[in-house]
Each structure stands twice: as structure tokens, then as C-alpha cells.
Design a binder for these strands. Structure first.
Lengths: 213, 213
DNA sequence: AATATTTTTATAACACGTGTCAATAATGTT
DNA sequence: AACATTATTGACACGTGTTATAAAAATATT
């Protein structure tokens, strides 16, 4: 990496760190580009050079969070894709719990920005992951062979992201969000399950986590 | 109503009409408070006096739309609550189709505003309606008697609203949104249906409308 | 009719995200 | 070392939602 790129990377990191620090210590409402420039020790223009927009800075923070989450690794589920999928929900909840105001803040800020191109990348990523898992579930015999993994994966991913949108806007708690997704996921997967997995899924559906009032 | 209240009501209507006109003829990006004041023939301050904020003006437009929709009346479904619920989805789609850019525009504008109090009223309304319908479905014998109508109604309403959030942000078409909701609704209702309604629901689930890729 | 209250108006201002543009500094290339 | 390229800076400006303030107009009260 050339020294120029090194400097850019360094400045990007400084700006991200400053943004995170401001959000943590002063609240996300006080994250303004002018304040960010001051705290990062950089001119007002530089974040625009290095990121493009305020939203892009926040996206960088979200990417860091996503990276941190993926580093946790998906809980092993003894090769049962469906269980892995459901466990991921619990992991998301735990992850959010660990730093709720921060994650919700950046998520909401991104969602309430009128940079719609943001969403499609994360949407595509989620859909791809879900499709892979559902294809595994089919080849594992957890889901019926006539199941359309593409369509099902897309449906499940959108379900998650749609609820996350409401979560970001503060409508309900981490737990409520995940319970909503869990219920929706289980119901849909029950429509495609084999006899092998039906009992487990049905039991999970009938034993809901707290969905809230 | 006192003359003062009459004047207020009149001005409110003028402002709403001006806002709608601007959105229609110049696009929602050109709906600024200054332009709104000019077109409405009113001072810049007046919309703030009468509505509170720009978001509140848009909420008034959305309320008008919701009112117009409810005036259509829910499609009769021969007393089958579940069918009525599903038909409502089709009605929503038709309604959106009839004026897509307008409805999506105001919906997106409201959703991307940081006035979160907005959402709760429409959310509460939707939940209440769904709960009523689900209670009917139970007493009609369409859903099992041990079904929790409160919980189920809430779940279904949130499913709809969560998807609508993504719809507003332009992620997918009217039809795709409703197909997503339809699939999710059918799957969940299938978990609570009686033998009477199972065949119909299962057939509907297996015959999805186009969900898009 | 005179007075008090409430609303609207006019004007200015604030903080915000973002853009322009020239100057300057840092880095790359020869 | 001299030059060319690129990145950062600084100061300013624009349009936005929103608020402040005081004057004017409309309405209510007596």
C-alpha cells in the first residue's frame, strides 16, 4: 500500500473512531460533520473526501459492527442448518444487547437517511446467506427436496431485515424483534420441513420466546 | 366550532392541498416548507403552528390516504375472516397501484424522518384491526380455539408494517411487498388453523403470487 | 365600542449536510 | 533535486428544517 493509501486508511480510522466516540459520549444527535471534523482533528471536507457523506461514515461504523458480529462465528449446530439459522437470531439479540443504544443508533441513522443505495448491499448479503443455509437444509433433509431454496431464503432474509427496520426505529426491544422474526421463520419453515424436522420446529413454534404484548 | 377553529381547519386544509399539489406536480423533493408556504398562500410559520413540523404535514396526508382507503370498505368475504384478511392485502396493492409514486413518496418521507412518535399510532391501529379479525376467525372456527388472538393479531400486523417499511424505502414493488406479507401471513395462520380452513390456506400458500426474485 | 386574547405575518437567525474553489501540503515520479 | 500528481485545508456559500421576536391582524370578551 502506498503511503498515500496508508494515510487515507489512517484518517478513515481516525474519523470512524471519532464518530464512535462522539456517539458514545455525546449521543448520536450530536454527531455533526463539523463536530466530527474537530474531534477527528481533520478538516470538514476530509470525511467527505474519504467517505462521501455522513451516511457513508455511519455505514462504515455499521460495517465494523457487522464484522465484529461475524467474527463471533455462527453457533455450531451439529450440521443442522435450521437450528443454526435460529441460533443466529439469539446471537444477534445477544450482540445487540451488548451495546444496544450504539447499534440501534447507527442503524436508525442509516435507515432514516435518504441514501437508499445503502440498504441494497446489506439486503443482498443477508439474502445470500439465508439462501446458502436453506440449500444446506434441503440437502440435509431438513427441508423437503421440492423447496425453492432461493425463494425461501429470500423470504426469510427479508423478514429479518423488515423487522430490523422497525427495531432500528425504536419500536420494540431486541428481544421482541427477534421473537417476531423467530415466529415468522418457524411458521414458514414448517411449511417446507420434512418429517425429520417437523417435531422440533413445531415444538419451537409452540414455545415462543416472549413476543411482548 | 368557533371562527378561530374554523379558520385553522381551513388553513390546515389549504396547506394539505398545497402539499399534495407540490408533491404531484414538482415531486416530493421539492416539497420544502418555504415553497409550501408560498403555494398555500400562508406564512412560513403557519404550517408549524397548525401541524408542528414538516413530518406532521406529511402524516396528515397519510391520514387522508388511510381514510380514503378505509372508505373503500374491506372486501366482503362471506364472513370468513381469514379470507377477508388476505383480500385486504390485495386491496392495499390495488390502492397503492392507483397512485404509487404519491403514496410511496409520503410513506418514505415519513419513515425517513426522525420523528419516531409517528409510527406508533398507525401501528396501534393496524394491530387493533388484526386482533379483531383474528378474534372473529377464532369464533368462526377458522382458527383453533386455543389461539391467542391478541398475540397473533399483533404478529400479523407487525409483519405487514415491517414489510411496508421496506416498501416505502423503494426496495420492492407493491406486488412483491404484498406477496411477502401474504406468504408470511399464510404460514403463521396455518399454524393455528382448524381442519376446516387448512386446505384453503395450504392451497393458497402453495400457489404464491409472484414473489419476485 | 373598547379591551384582551389568540393567530398570523414578516424578518431574521441558527445549525445542519453538502458543495465550490483556490491555496497548501504531502507524496509520487523523473 | 525538480516537477507532477494527489490530498487536505480553509473560508465561504447554498438550501434546508426550525425557532425567535416583534408587529399586525383577527377574533373573543366585556
Amino acid at each position: 500500500m502506498s503511503r498515500r493509501e496508508e494515510a487515507k486508511t489512517f484518517n478513515r480510522a481516525r474519523i470512524c473512531a471519532a464518530a464512535e466516540s462522539i456517539i458514545r459520549s455525546e449521543g448520536i444527535d450530536n454527531l455533526t460533520m463539523r463536530r466530527l471534523a474537530v474531534v477527528a482533528g481533520v478538516s470538514l471536507r476530509t470525511p467527505y473526501n474519504l467517505f462521501g457523506s455522513k451516511t457513508d461514515v455511519l455505514i462504515a461504523l455499521l460495517d465494523e459492527a457487522v464484522f465484529k458480529f461475524t467474527q463471533l462465528g455462527l453457533a455450531r449446530a451439529d450440521g443442522v442448518a435450521i437450528v443454526g439459522m435460529l441460533r443466529a437470531l439469539g446471537q444477534i439479540e445477544t450482540f445487540f444487547d451488548s451495546d444496544e443504544t450504539y447499534y440501534r443508533g447507527i442503524y436508525a441513522a442509516i435507515m432514516t437517511s435518504d441514501h437508499p443505495e445503502v440498504r441494497s448491499t446489506s439486503v443482498d448479503r443477508a439474502i445470500a446467506s439465508a439462501r446458502v443455509l436453506m440449500a444446506q437444509a434441503i440437502s440435509n433433509g431438513e427441508l423437503r427436496a421440492d423447496t425453492d431454496a432461493q425463494s425461501l431464503g429470500r423470504h426469510l432474509a427479508i423478514t429479518l431485515l423488515a423487522v430490523l427496520g422497525m427495531w432500528g426505529s425504536g419500536f420494540f426491544s431486541n428481544r421482541e424483534s427477534m421473537a417476531q422474526v423467530r415466529r415468522a421463520w418457524l411458521a414458514v419453515m414448517l411449511q417446507h420441513c420434512t418429517d425429520t424436522s417437523r417435531l422440533m420446529l413445531a415444538a419451537a413454534y409452540d414455545n415462543p420466546s416472549d413476543i411482548g404484548d
